[in-house]
Design a protein around this nucleic acid. Structure first.
Lengths: 239, 239
DNA sequence: TCTCAAGAAAGTGCATGCAATTGCTATGCC
DNA sequence: GGCATAGCAATTGCATGCACTTTCTTGAGA
């Protein structure tokens, strides 16, 4: 091989490419419908086509890319109907997580959840959208972990990541920040109270509201073809 | 290429291998922990190692095999804890499907569900375990489709297939056949009534009961190492 | 000008080969 | 006898090459 690619190599070349390409899809750098040419990807990442092909295969198994035999791969195109069903699933899944959280979270998990949630109130007052977004992600992640169910966690986390590109700008909506916090508050309160039904319902509603808020932005965001060429740096090292 | 492998070729060689190997894992022919040697697989299927590697990569992305870098692949080992979480998820997912069915199934879907269910009563009286098993699969599949939610369908179907090896002999339990039918009956009745809450609860309970019934057999079925060599024919053609 | 076809170009699918890593075995040392 | 280590066999990871498929291009005919 032509030298280590970085000091600490995280997994094989294929793994790194799966992460690299997957990230670009999930973050929206690569847009749905965009062609993923094996040769150019190989050139950009400075590897041969073999690992590229394997990476595309895995991403296809994850549903992030679509592979047409003999006709190349494209970033998975999500129909409006499928998007709706994903948001729908997400609401149900988060509802389950919250319900389980209310029943199963340890004392320290409950304390941490509450503390972080209280801390994020400050960000709402400041209108710090970016920072709140970070806390929001962390908050939801806590719910998934707190369910103490590995498989539910996986289903929820992967569904969430696939929804990520369609949820980007939700906090730009006027007043969304404050409302989001209030919805979180309802979830936290129910969990701390141990009221699983209320926690589940609150989480489900919360996601349903986010879905609507996101749908506003999702409209027209679904390109039928590729946009501009993607100018990503050919580094496999960082995440 | 060295000649078509069959008259109608379903997808690429890799796709066929994913199906072939995946089937053998899901049906329990390949046992958890069993080593998946690239060279021998390539020899068995009469292809080179490249498509084998791609197939293993995709199967790993699906969670059916585990890949240790530089150390080969094995059939995914499911811990007792993870198995529990999968059954748990399954119950929740089927509950969601049944709930949606009650709300969304078309008239013809409802009719078909009822008709098939009634027909299967005969199999219970005959004690035809094999045939009932087939109807049972079809019944659940109807629930997943009837939810009219593509993503929920996918989550549910893949979870079900991953649970398949652990559910094999459930109908051998005395009286399980009749009880299963009664549980189905509760689900069907609620769906036809349009009572989504009852349908969801009934489906959830049904799966929970199956989980317990299956767990009896799952115990001790988890081998720590490979069993006998797997005698599968090297045909990529059939499913 | 439009349609269609033949050929060329581009790109995918798989086989093969080599370097690198792992794991086993055997030999030497304590 | 037990443990460490060097060498070897087995296996994985990736690059390269060639055949096949699709797509683009060009030009003749209507």
């Amino acid at each position: 091989m032509s030298g280590k690619r970085s000091l600490v190599r995280l997994g094989t070349t294929v793994d790194q490419m799966v992460r690299a390409i997957g990230d670009r899809i999930v973050t929206g750098v690569l847009r749905p419908g965009e062609k993923l040419d094996e040769t150019s990807l190989a050139a950009r990442f400075e590897v041969s086509r073999t690992p590229v092909r394997e990476a595309l295969g895995q991403l296809s198994a994850m549903g992030l890319v679509e592979r047409r035999p003999n006709r190349g791969a494209i970033v998975a195109v999500v129909t409006q109907e499928y998007l709706t069903s994903m948001f729908e699933s997400m609401a149900e899944l988060e509802g389950i997580c919250a319900r389980f959280c209310a029943e199963r979270m340890t004392v320290s998990e409950r304390r941490a959840l509450e503390a972080e949630h209280e801390a994020s109130a400050r960000l709402v007052r400041l209108g710090a959208e970016e920072d709140y977004e970070y806390f929001n992600t962390e908050f939801h992640s806590r719910l998934y972990r707190g369910a103490h169910s590995t498989h539910i966690y996986e289903l929820t986390a992967t569904t969430r990541s696939r929804l990520a590109p369609f949820r980007r700008a939700q906090f730009r909506l006027a007043g969304r920040l404050a409302k989001s916090w209030q919805e979180h508050d309802a979830i936290v309160t129910a969990i701390l109270r141990g009221d699983s039904a209320a926690a589940g319902a609150a989480a489900k509603d919360h996601v349903a509201i986010v879905s609507v808020a996101s749908a506003v932005f999702a409209v027209g965001e679904q390109p039928s073809g590729p946009r501009a060429a993607t100018p990503f740096a050919a580094t496999l090292s960082g995440k």
